[in-house]
Simulated scan of single mutants.
Amino acid sequence: MKRYNWATLGCGVIANQLAEAMISRGDNLYSVANRTHEKALEFAAKYGIEKVYDKIDDVFEDENVDIIYISTPHNTHIEYLRKALKAGKHVLCEKSITLNSNELDEAIALAEENHVILAEAMTIFHMPIYKELNKIIESGKLGDLKLIQMNFGSYKEYDMTNRFFNRNLAGGAMLDIGVYALSFVRWFMSSKPTEILSQVRYAPTGVDEQASILLKNKEEEMATVILSLHAKQPKRGTIAFDKGYVEIFEYPRGEEAVITYTEDGSKEVIKSGNTSNALLYEVEDMEKALNGNHDIMHLNYTKDVMDMMTEIRNEWGMKYPEEI
Protein backbone atom coordinates (compact mmCIF):
# COMPACT_ATOMS: atom_id res chain seq x y z
CA MET A 1 0.00 0.00 0.00
CA LYS A 2 1.19 3.49 -0.85
CA ARG A 3 2.62 5.56 2.00
CA TYR A 4 0.57 8.70 2.63
CA ASN A 5 1.72 11.91 4.25
CA TRP A 6 -0.52 12.75 7.22
CA ALA A 7 -0.72 16.21 8.77
CA THR A 8 -2.39 16.90 12.09
CA LEU A 9 -4.31 20.14 12.47
CA GLY A 10 -4.49 20.48 16.25
CA CYS A 11 -2.24 19.33 19.10
CA GLY A 12 -4.72 18.11 21.72
CA VAL A 13 -5.42 14.69 23.22
CA ILE A 14 -6.60 13.12 19.97
CA ALA A 15 -3.62 14.47 18.04
CA ASN A 16 -1.32 12.83 20.58
CA GLN A 17 -3.16 9.54 20.12
CA LEU A 18 -2.88 9.92 16.35
CA ALA A 19 0.89 10.46 16.58
CA GLU A 20 1.21 7.39 18.81
CA ALA A 21 -0.87 5.33 16.39
CA MET A 22 1.42 6.27 13.51
CA ILE A 23 4.51 5.37 15.52
CA SER A 24 2.97 2.01 16.50
CA ARG A 25 3.03 0.96 12.85
CA GLY A 26 6.57 2.18 12.31
CA ASP A 27 5.54 5.44 10.71
CA ASN A 28 5.24 9.09 11.71
CA LEU A 29 3.16 12.15 11.03
CA TYR A 30 4.53 14.23 8.18
CA SER A 31 3.65 17.61 9.68
CA VAL A 32 1.80 19.55 12.36
CA ALA A 33 -0.27 22.74 12.24
CA ASN A 34 -1.72 24.57 15.22
CA ARG A 35 -3.08 28.01 16.02
CA THR A 36 -0.41 28.37 18.71
CA HIS A 37 2.95 27.91 16.97
CA GLU A 38 4.81 27.19 20.22
CA LYS A 39 2.52 24.24 20.98
CA ALA A 40 3.09 22.89 17.47
CA LEU A 41 6.85 23.04 18.03
CA GLU A 42 6.53 21.20 21.35
CA PHE A 43 4.30 18.56 19.74
CA ALA A 44 6.74 18.06 16.86
CA ALA A 45 9.69 17.69 19.25
CA LYS A 46 7.79 15.14 21.33
CA TYR A 47 7.06 12.87 18.36
CA GLY A 48 9.99 13.58 16.07
CA ILE A 49 7.91 15.35 13.42
CA GLU A 50 10.11 17.25 11.00
CA LYS A 51 7.72 19.81 9.55
CA VAL A 52 5.98 22.55 11.58
CA TYR A 53 4.09 25.35 9.84
CA ASP A 54 4.67 28.97 10.80
CA LYS A 55 1.01 29.72 10.07
CA ILE A 56 -1.82 27.24 10.47
CA ASP A 57 -3.13 27.83 6.92
CA ASP A 58 0.21 26.79 5.43
CA VAL A 59 -0.79 23.15 5.83
CA PHE A 60 -3.41 23.56 3.10
CA GLU A 61 -0.82 24.86 0.63
CA ASP A 62 1.72 22.11 1.23
CA GLU A 63 1.70 19.97 -1.92
CA ASN A 64 3.25 17.05 -0.04
CA VAL A 65 0.31 16.65 2.36
CA ASP A 66 -2.10 13.88 1.37
CA ILE A 67 -4.41 13.66 4.41
CA ILE A 68 -5.24 16.20 7.10
CA TYR A 69 -6.58 15.04 10.46
CA ILE A 70 -8.60 17.87 12.01
CA SER A 71 -8.98 17.71 15.81
CA THR A 72 -9.73 21.31 16.73
CA PRO A 73 -12.98 22.35 18.55
CA HIS A 74 -16.27 21.51 16.78
CA ASN A 75 -17.11 25.06 15.83
CA THR A 76 -13.84 25.50 13.90
CA HIS A 77 -14.26 22.41 11.74
CA ILE A 78 -16.20 23.89 8.84
CA GLU A 79 -13.67 26.72 8.42
CA TYR A 80 -10.80 24.23 8.11
CA LEU A 81 -12.82 21.75 6.06
CA ARG A 82 -13.50 24.43 3.46
CA LYS A 83 -9.82 25.28 3.15
CA ALA A 84 -8.60 21.69 3.14
CA LEU A 85 -11.13 20.34 0.66
CA LYS A 86 -10.74 23.29 -1.72
CA ALA A 87 -6.99 22.65 -1.62
CA GLY A 88 -7.58 19.07 -2.73
CA LYS A 89 -6.65 17.42 0.58
CA HIS A 90 -8.30 14.28 1.90
CA VAL A 91 -9.71 14.91 5.38
CA LEU A 92 -10.39 12.80 8.45
CA CYS A 93 -12.17 15.10 10.89
CA GLU A 94 -12.87 14.56 14.58
CA LYS A 95 -16.45 14.14 15.68
CA SER A 96 -18.70 15.94 15.55
CA ILE A 97 -17.59 16.62 12.01
CA THR A 98 -19.59 19.87 11.78
CA LEU A 99 -22.11 21.77 13.89
CA ASN A 100 -25.11 20.96 11.72
CA SER A 101 -26.41 19.37 8.52
CA ASN A 102 -26.03 22.50 6.39
CA GLU A 103 -22.31 22.67 7.17
CA LEU A 104 -21.87 18.95 6.47
CA ASP A 105 -23.76 19.19 3.17
CA GLU A 106 -21.41 22.00 2.15
CA ALA A 107 -18.35 19.94 3.07
CA ILE A 108 -19.63 16.87 1.22
CA ALA A 109 -20.25 18.96 -1.90
CA LEU A 110 -16.71 20.38 -1.71
CA ALA A 111 -15.24 16.89 -1.33
CA GLU A 112 -17.13 15.68 -4.38
CA GLU A 113 -16.20 18.75 -6.39
CA ASN A 114 -12.50 18.31 -5.60
CA HIS A 115 -12.50 14.49 -5.86
CA VAL A 116 -11.20 13.85 -2.35
CA ILE A 117 -12.23 11.66 0.57
CA LEU A 118 -14.04 13.27 3.51
CA ALA A 119 -14.73 11.23 6.64
CA GLU A 120 -15.53 11.58 10.32
CA ALA A 121 -13.18 10.02 12.86
CA MET A 122 -15.91 7.94 14.49
CA THR A 123 -14.27 4.99 16.25
CA ILE A 124 -17.46 2.89 16.16
CA PHE A 125 -17.27 2.68 12.37
CA HIS A 126 -13.74 1.26 12.51
CA MET A 127 -13.36 -0.91 15.62
CA PRO A 128 -13.11 -4.58 14.52
CA ILE A 129 -15.74 -5.71 17.07
CA TYR A 130 -18.47 -3.90 15.13
CA LYS A 131 -17.47 -5.45 11.85
CA GLU A 132 -17.47 -8.88 13.53
CA LEU A 133 -20.92 -8.31 15.03
CA ASN A 134 -22.26 -7.29 11.63
CA LYS A 135 -21.20 -10.66 10.22
CA ILE A 136 -23.06 -12.46 13.00
CA ILE A 137 -26.19 -10.33 12.54
CA GLU A 138 -26.14 -10.77 8.77
CA SER A 139 -25.97 -14.55 9.24
CA GLY A 140 -29.49 -14.41 10.68
CA LYS A 141 -28.68 -16.36 13.85
CA LEU A 142 -30.02 -13.54 16.05
CA GLY A 143 -33.17 -12.87 14.03
CA ASP A 144 -34.64 -9.43 13.42
CA LEU A 145 -33.56 -6.31 15.30
CA LYS A 146 -36.19 -5.01 17.72
CA LEU A 147 -34.69 -2.52 20.18
CA ILE A 148 -31.45 -0.70 21.00
CA GLN A 149 -30.75 0.84 24.41
CA MET A 150 -27.88 3.30 24.76
CA ASN A 151 -26.28 4.93 27.81
CA PHE A 152 -23.47 7.47 27.88
CA GLY A 153 -22.93 9.49 31.04
CA SER A 154 -19.83 11.46 31.96
CA TYR A 155 -19.30 13.47 35.11
CA LYS A 156 -17.79 16.82 34.25
CA GLU A 157 -17.22 19.42 36.96
CA TYR A 158 -19.35 22.54 36.61
CA ASP A 159 -16.63 24.66 35.04
CA MET A 160 -18.66 26.72 32.64
CA THR A 161 -15.58 27.97 30.81
CA ASN A 162 -14.40 24.57 29.54
CA ARG A 163 -15.42 23.17 26.19
CA PHE A 164 -18.05 20.80 27.62
CA PHE A 165 -20.34 23.59 28.83
CA ASN A 166 -19.13 26.54 26.75
CA ARG A 167 -21.53 27.69 24.00
CA ASN A 168 -18.70 29.52 22.27
CA LEU A 169 -16.86 26.21 21.87
CA ALA A 170 -20.00 24.32 20.73
CA GLY A 171 -20.28 22.52 24.06
CA GLY A 172 -23.06 20.23 25.23
CA ALA A 173 -23.85 16.54 25.46
CA MET A 174 -25.24 16.08 21.94
CA LEU A 175 -22.16 16.99 19.90
CA ASP A 176 -19.66 15.62 22.43
CA ILE A 177 -21.10 12.25 23.47
CA GLY A 178 -24.48 11.98 21.72
CA VAL A 179 -22.68 11.58 18.41
CA TYR A 180 -21.26 8.27 19.71
CA ALA A 181 -24.61 6.95 20.89
CA LEU A 182 -26.41 7.91 17.68
CA SER A 183 -23.60 6.48 15.54
CA PHE A 184 -23.96 3.20 17.43
CA VAL A 185 -27.71 3.24 16.80
CA ARG A 186 -27.25 3.98 13.10
CA TRP A 187 -24.64 1.25 12.72
CA PHE A 188 -27.11 -1.44 13.76
CA MET A 189 -30.43 -0.03 12.50
CA SER A 190 -31.55 -1.11 9.04
CA SER A 191 -32.28 2.49 8.03
CA LYS A 192 -32.17 6.03 9.35
CA PRO A 193 -34.76 6.77 12.08
CA THR A 194 -37.73 8.74 10.75
CA GLU A 195 -39.52 9.37 14.06
CA ILE A 196 -37.68 11.23 16.84
CA LEU A 197 -38.84 12.39 20.27
CA SER A 198 -36.56 14.00 22.85
CA GLN A 199 -36.24 15.85 26.13
CA VAL A 200 -33.44 18.14 27.27
CA ARG A 201 -32.02 19.59 30.47
CA TYR A 202 -29.81 22.64 30.06
CA ALA A 203 -26.62 23.62 31.83
CA PRO A 204 -26.48 27.20 33.19
CA THR A 205 -24.65 28.25 30.00
CA GLY A 206 -27.57 27.16 27.82
CA VAL A 207 -26.00 24.07 26.27
CA ASP A 208 -27.55 20.64 26.64
CA GLU A 209 -26.29 18.99 29.81
CA GLN A 210 -28.61 16.00 29.68
CA ALA A 211 -30.95 14.46 27.10
CA SER A 212 -33.24 11.51 26.47
CA ILE A 213 -34.08 10.46 22.91
CA LEU A 214 -36.55 7.98 21.40
CA LEU A 215 -36.06 6.79 17.81
CA LYS A 216 -37.96 4.61 15.32
CA ASN A 217 -37.31 3.83 11.66
CA LYS A 218 -39.54 2.58 8.83
CA GLU A 219 -38.79 -1.05 9.77
CA GLU A 220 -40.17 -0.18 13.26
CA GLU A 221 -36.83 -0.86 14.89
CA MET A 222 -36.66 1.32 17.99
CA ALA A 223 -33.93 2.88 20.13
CA THR A 224 -33.59 4.78 23.39
CA VAL A 225 -30.64 7.06 24.15
CA ILE A 226 -29.79 8.64 27.53
CA LEU A 227 -26.98 11.22 27.70
CA SER A 228 -25.47 13.27 30.51
CA LEU A 229 -22.39 15.42 31.05
CA HIS A 230 -22.96 15.68 34.82
CA ALA A 231 -24.05 12.17 35.87
CA LYS A 232 -21.80 9.17 35.47
CA GLN A 233 -23.37 6.07 33.93
CA PRO A 234 -21.92 3.08 32.11
CA LYS A 235 -21.08 3.42 28.44
CA ARG A 236 -23.31 0.50 27.56
CA GLY A 237 -25.08 -0.50 24.38
CA THR A 238 -27.69 -3.28 24.25
CA ILE A 239 -29.03 -4.53 20.93
CA ALA A 240 -32.09 -6.80 21.26
CA PHE A 241 -33.12 -9.23 18.52
CA ASP A 242 -35.73 -11.98 18.20
CA LYS A 243 -33.34 -14.71 19.29
CA GLY A 244 -30.97 -12.93 21.62
CA TYR A 245 -29.38 -9.68 22.71
CA VAL A 246 -25.90 -8.22 22.47
CA GLU A 247 -24.22 -6.13 25.18
CA ILE A 248 -21.18 -3.94 24.63
CA PHE A 249 -19.50 -1.94 27.39
CA GLU A 250 -17.18 1.02 26.79
CA TYR A 251 -18.66 0.96 23.32
CA PRO A 252 -16.95 4.00 21.76
CA ARG A 253 -13.77 1.91 21.59
CA GLY A 254 -15.22 -1.50 22.37
CA GLU A 255 -13.30 -4.73 21.95
CA GLU A 256 -15.66 -7.29 23.52
CA ALA A 257 -19.37 -8.11 23.24
CA VAL A 258 -21.55 -10.67 25.01
CA ILE A 259 -24.42 -12.37 23.20
CA THR A 260 -27.17 -13.88 25.36
CA TYR A 261 -29.46 -16.28 23.50
CA THR A 262 -33.16 -16.04 24.34
CA GLU A 263 -34.05 -19.71 24.03
CA ASP A 264 -31.75 -21.14 26.70
CA GLY A 265 -29.98 -18.14 28.27
CA SER A 266 -26.59 -19.31 27.06
CA LYS A 267 -23.90 -16.72 26.50
CA GLU A 268 -21.26 -16.24 23.82
CA VAL A 269 -18.34 -13.83 24.19
CA ILE A 270 -17.09 -12.14 21.03
CA LYS A 271 -13.67 -10.48 21.12
CA SER A 272 -12.10 -8.57 18.27
CA GLY A 273 -9.59 -5.75 18.05
CA ASN A 274 -7.95 -3.75 20.79
CA THR A 275 -9.17 -0.57 22.47
CA SER A 276 -5.69 0.93 22.46
CA ASN A 277 -5.56 0.71 18.65
CA ALA A 278 -8.70 2.80 18.01
CA LEU A 279 -6.89 5.59 16.15
CA LEU A 280 -4.81 3.08 14.20
CA TYR A 281 -7.95 1.42 12.84
CA GLU A 282 -9.24 4.80 11.68
CA VAL A 283 -5.94 5.60 9.96
CA GLU A 284 -5.81 2.23 8.20
CA ASP A 285 -9.42 2.45 7.00
CA MET A 286 -8.85 5.98 5.72
CA GLU A 287 -5.91 4.79 3.66
CA LYS A 288 -8.01 1.92 2.31
CA ALA A 289 -10.59 4.51 1.25
CA LEU A 290 -7.91 6.41 -0.66
CA ASN A 291 -7.11 3.15 -2.42
CA GLY A 292 -10.68 2.77 -3.67
CA ASN A 293 -12.73 1.32 -0.81
CA HIS A 294 -14.73 4.52 -0.26
CA ASP A 295 -17.64 2.90 1.60
CA ILE A 296 -15.38 1.82 4.45
CA MET A 297 -15.55 5.32 5.98
CA HIS A 298 -19.38 5.32 6.19
CA LEU A 299 -19.93 8.97 5.36
CA ASN A 300 -23.58 8.07 4.74
CA TYR A 301 -23.93 7.12 8.42
CA THR A 302 -22.17 10.32 9.45
CA LYS A 303 -24.72 12.26 7.36
CA ASP A 304 -27.66 10.40 8.93
CA VAL A 305 -26.36 11.04 12.45
CA MET A 306 -25.76 14.72 11.75
CA ASP A 307 -29.28 15.04 10.37
CA MET A 308 -30.67 13.51 13.57
CA MET A 309 -28.61 15.74 15.84
CA THR A 310 -29.59 18.83 13.86
CA GLU A 311 -33.28 17.92 13.94
CA ILE A 312 -33.17 17.33 17.68
CA ARG A 313 -31.39 20.60 18.46
CA ASN A 314 -33.75 22.50 16.14
CA GLU A 315 -36.67 21.02 18.06
CA TRP A 316 -35.08 22.24 21.29
CA GLY A 317 -34.37 25.65 19.79
CA MET A 318 -30.75 25.38 20.88
CA LYS A 319 -28.30 27.16 18.58
CA TYR A 320 -24.66 28.07 18.83
CA PRO A 321 -23.43 31.63 18.09
CA GLU A 322 -22.24 30.54 14.62
CA GLU A 323 -25.77 29.34 13.79
CA ILE A 324 -27.69 32.48 14.79
Rank of each mutant, 00 (worst) to 15 (best):
N162A: 06
R163I: 03
F165P: 01
N166A: 09
N168L: 08
N168I: 00
N168A: 10
A170M: 01
A170I: 02
A170V: 05
G172I: 05
G178M: 02
V179I: 15
L182M: 11
L182E: 14
L182G: 11
F184T: 04
R186A: 10
S191R: 13
P193E: 05
T194G: 07
T194I: 12
I196R: 11
I196H: 05
P204H: 06
P204W: 04
V207G: 03
E209A: 14
E209M: 11
A211V: 05
A211H: 01
K218Q: 10
E219R: 14
E220H: 12
E220I: 00
A223N: 08
A223T: 07
V225S: 02
I226Y: 08
H230A: 10
H230T: 12
R236N: 11
T238Y: 00
I239F: 07
Y245H: 13
V246C: 02
E247M: 07
P252E: 02
P252G: 04
G254Y: 10
G254H: 07
E256F: 00
A257F: 05
V258S: 02
T260Q: 15
T260L: 12
T262G: 01
D264N: 15
G265S: 05
E268Q: 09
V269A: 02
I270L: 06
I270S: 08
S272F: 06
S272Q: 10
G273L: 08
T275K: 13
L280P: 06
Y281S: 10
D285R: 14
